[in-house]
């Protein structure tokens, strides 16, 4: 592949954004690589997996119909997840950059760090997206929100193509004015109040901005990350008192769902929980989450 000296970075960025949006991205940005390298801990920096990386492109995919936010929670768990759409978009974008600009690119692995185990991502897609200006941290466990697109899933592309970086969002849309009002009255925002495992808390300052965000990720994981249920089930079976209890531990209806999910590779799964987003005015009323409305707005 050739170098990037003949490429106009701004024009390349425009082409990249256009391609990603055509592939379904709602919003695309380029993060400040130096800032990422400065903030991410060793082992989790872009240069740790792509030493010659010059740019980190973050994109967001998502959008739910209004109806989607009102379906039963267990149904929401199935179609609330749009991360695979984000990943496929980023996957295509990495090929696009290589083909169009002959510059090595990778689709950033969106997975956990196999040396550290679950709950430790290899790369923080959140950090990329935040610095790329396509989302800001919310009181809902730092889920990124966008003032126009609401709640999205994010994916990243690393490339040796040098692109001009975007700035983070100038304003954080969280907390929304209605959430501030609620906080003033009851001491909680909707996401805090309605979290089924009560994993959220925090404080809003006098100016209506986030002062503190407290997130009990361990509690959240018990609700949303069923992969840990699998070894837990097997451990329970091993510790069972007798053969009948052992069989029950493996084959009870809950656990059979786990085996089913594993067998079919279903990822949007058993217990993805969207309750904090279901009550979030930014997520549920994002003006451009609706593709029809978006097209009318000419976005």
């Amino acid at each position: 592949m050739s170098g990037t000296t003949e490429i106009d970075p701004a024009a390349a960025k425009a082409e990249i954004i256009a391609y990603a949006k055509k592939r379904g991205a709602l919003v695309v940005g380029v993060a400040d690589l130096a800032a990422i390298e400065r903030i991410a801990p060793p082992g989790h920096r872009p240069s740790d997996i792509m030493p010659r990386v010059k740019s980190v492109i973050a994109l967001g995919v998502g959008g739910q119909t209004q109806g989607a936010w009102s379906v039963p929670a267990k149904a929401m768990a199935y179609f609330g997840s749009t991360e695979t759409r984000a990943y496929s978009c980023a996957y295509g974008l990495s090929f696009f950059i290589e083909n169009r600009f002959q510059t090595p690119s990778i689709y950033c692995p969106p997975d956990m760090d196999n040396e550290a185990g679950p709950r430790v991502p290899m790369q923080s897609l959140k950090l990329h997206a935040e610095l790329a200006g396509i989302g800001a941290r919310s009181l809902a466990g730092d889920i990124l929100l966008h003032p126009e697109f609401g709640y999205m899933y994010f994916a990243s592309v690393f490339t040796e193509l040098e692109l001009p970086a975007d700035a983070p969002l100038a304003e954080n849309p969280c907390p929304a004015p209605s959430c501030v009002d609620m906080y003033r009255k009851v001491g909680q925002t909707p996401c805090m109040k309605f979290c089924p495992v009560q994993c959220l808390s925090g404080r809003i300052d006098d100016a209506g901005r986030q002062a503190e965000m407290h997130y009990d990720m361990a509690a959240c994981a018990e609700m949303t990350q069923q992969y840990e249920a699998v070894p837990a089930v097997i451990a329970a079976a091993l510790a069972a008192e007798d053969a009948a209890a052992r069989t029950d531990a493996l084959f009870d209806p809950d656990n059979k769902m786990l085996w089913y999910k594993m067998s079919v590779g279903s990822g949007g799964l058993l217990a993805q929980c969207f309750e904090c987003m279901r009550v979030c005015p930014i997520a549920t009323r994002a003006p451009q989450a609706d593709p029809i409305r978006r097209s009318k707005l000419g976005s």
Partner: peptide, 10 residues
């Protein structure tokens, strides 16, 4: 367990 004070990354 995570605590964030302010909005320092942004």
């Amino acid at each position: 367990h995570q605590i964030r004070r302010g909005d320092p990354v942004r």
